[in-house]
Amino acid sequence: MLRAITLLGFAFLYAPILSLVIYSFNESRLVTVWSGFSTRWYAELLQDDQILGAAWISIKVATLSATLATVLGTLAALALIRHGRFRGRPALGGLVTAPLVMPEVIIGLSLLLLFVAMDNLIGWPAGRGVLTIVIAHATFGTAFATVVVQARMVSLDRALEDAAQDLGAHPLRVFFDITLPGLAPALISAWLLAFTLSLDDVVIASFVAGPGASTLPMVIFSKVRLGVSPEVNALATLMIATVSILVLAASFRSWRR
């Protein structure tokens, strides 16, 4: 009984993904009627300038925001785990967990209103586009990065840092020589998570993007609202393949250790 439900649950999680992959190789435009194996949608995808342009914007936004989020998240985790009690601690603790559960429509709308108000008041950020999306994504990315880095930092052996400090190493040196290498796996996970979340977000980006910049999820969303599109299936397959290879490689490495 337990087994059956578990199997059913996993089938439920994976069947839709599998169907996307299978139908991306379908000849017919009618996504659900199988009419023979073909890679034509991949060829069309590679010639679709709108999708390629949006993908490029998305990769830029995701790289920048994930990097910012990892730096800010590491600092936040450091303060929360290593600094004991300080005045801003409750505020910081609340601010890093709130974005995790806040509905996206609220984050998107409130950030847009802030950007518009700031633009009117101080002239920055002038207009909306890549910069405002990066800021928005870095903000919720920071929350996720903090959680990931925090989890690792708790299990890190403090004795090494204490020893280095006792031997006279400057706190910065202790951080870069001992703490940071120990955190490396978590920093990579945090960056990848923030990158993935940025690459996936359609709601917040739609609010803060303005008319100039369209990210990949925004283009996909406007395409699929009109119905299924085999090109999107091909794109999905490429993205799923990339992620699966990365995740499998990462877990294979951690298993071998």
Partner: peptide
């Protein structure tokens, strides 16, 4: 890992997959 893996693949595309599964044909 199998539980976490879908979380790493695009949420938008996974929801989109259901359109192909659920529509009339």
């Amino acid at each position: 890992m199998l539980v976490i893996l879908p979380f790493w693949t695009s949420f938008l595309l996974r929801v989109y997959a259901w359109i192909g599964l659920l529509k009339a044909n």
